[in-house]
């Protein structure tokens, strides 16, 4: 007797797990929302959400927390994607921060991140009365993320308490919460950076072109290449933007996202470069260098 099997590849198993998690959120929460940060992980997550509910539409809105300092290409990509896929897109910026003219250049990355990201996120989640927010974080990204549950409980103040996480066994998610409490759900928990890029490559998922190398105007600050995306960046005396062939391994606010010099103009080339890279994707993120444990602290305060 020949044994008939449906052999799943590694990415197919990861995909199956993620789809199951996304469906679980839709089925067990009243008001779920999916975080849409426009980056590569969000693009994969969005793709998985479309798969999870096919042939139906995605049954929850997308939330973009706009710090007002995103790369212009990201915003254009966001609006185009939302239109093409008919997404229910919510965009929120912290009005207080906007009124105060918050800028990472002026206020420093720590205060800026707190006001324009953490506080803005909490405002948007509270305003929407969302009881579950799906995020694209992966455990391989950072050491405190490696510790987080797939369904991660948040108290009334959106805080994470890493010392009292609920046990999480098998795929028997505990999605139960009290009034005002919420859950952050991470369907990409078990994906690695290489998995994400390979999946984008194989599934032909559209990503922001900033991930691919092109000549772009950059200045070097503290060893980090910052792209001059608009004229809000205060150039120091004698500082002139240089055109360099660069790309980004992670995308966020342009003043906080370091570029890497690269000639990789296709996904295949990007992956090739990644395989020989000797530093992590997080290295280009300015906010992660605020100290050992800074990510954990931000997450305790409600940051994604």
């Amino acid at each position: 007797m020949t044994v008939v099997r449906d052999q799943l590849s590694h990415l197919q198993s990861l995909e199956a797990e993620s789809i199951d998690i996304i469906r679980e959120v839709a089925a067990s929460f009243q008001r779920p929302v999916m975080m849409y940060s426009i980056g590569k992980d969000s693009s994969v997550m969005l793709h998985l959400a479309r798969k999870a509910f096919h042939p139906g539409p995605i049954p929850f809105p997308m939330l973009h927390v706009d710090t007002t300092w995103k790369f212009r290409e990201m915003i254009a990509f966001r609006d185009r994607t939302a239109k093409e896929l008919g997404l229910d897109l919510i965009v929120h910026s912290n009005p207080d921060g906007v009124a105060q003219g918050m800028s990472p250049f002026v206020h420093g990355s720590r205060v800026y991140t707190d006001v324009m990201k953490t506080q803005a996120l909490k405002q948007a989640l509270s305003a929407g009365r969302f009881d579950c927010a799906i995020g694209g974080a992966r455990r391989d990204e950072e050491k405190s993320r490696a510790k987080e549950r797939i369904f991660s409980f948040r108290d009334r103040n959106h805080r994470w308490d890493p010392k009292t996480q609920r046990p999480e066994l098998w795929n028997l998610w505990n999605t139960r919460i009290g009034p005002g409490e919420s859950v952050r759900s991470f369907p990409l928990s078990n994906w690695t950076e290489l998995d994400v890029w390979t999946y984008i490559h194989l599934e032909k998922i559209d990503v922001v072109p900033l991930y691919l190398a092109a000549k772009r105007p950059v200045v070097e600050r503290d060893g980090v290449l910052i792209m001059v995306d608009d004229d809000r960046i205060p150039l120091e005396a004698g500082e002139t933007p240089e055109m360099k062939s660069v790309r980004f391994r992670t995308l966020g606010c342009y003043p906080l996202s370091g570029a890497v010099e690269s000639e990789a103009a296709t996904l295949a080339e990007v992956i090739t470069e990644m395989l020989v890279a000797r530093s992590s994707e997080r290295q280009g993120r300015v906010i992660d260098h605020d100290g050992d444990g800074s990510m954990e602290d931000k997450k305790k305060e409600g940051y994604f």
Partner: peptide, 10 residues
Amino acid sequence: LLVDGLRSER
């Protein structure tokens, strides 16, 4: 310390 990633663990 590569795996003990929480502040209290460290």
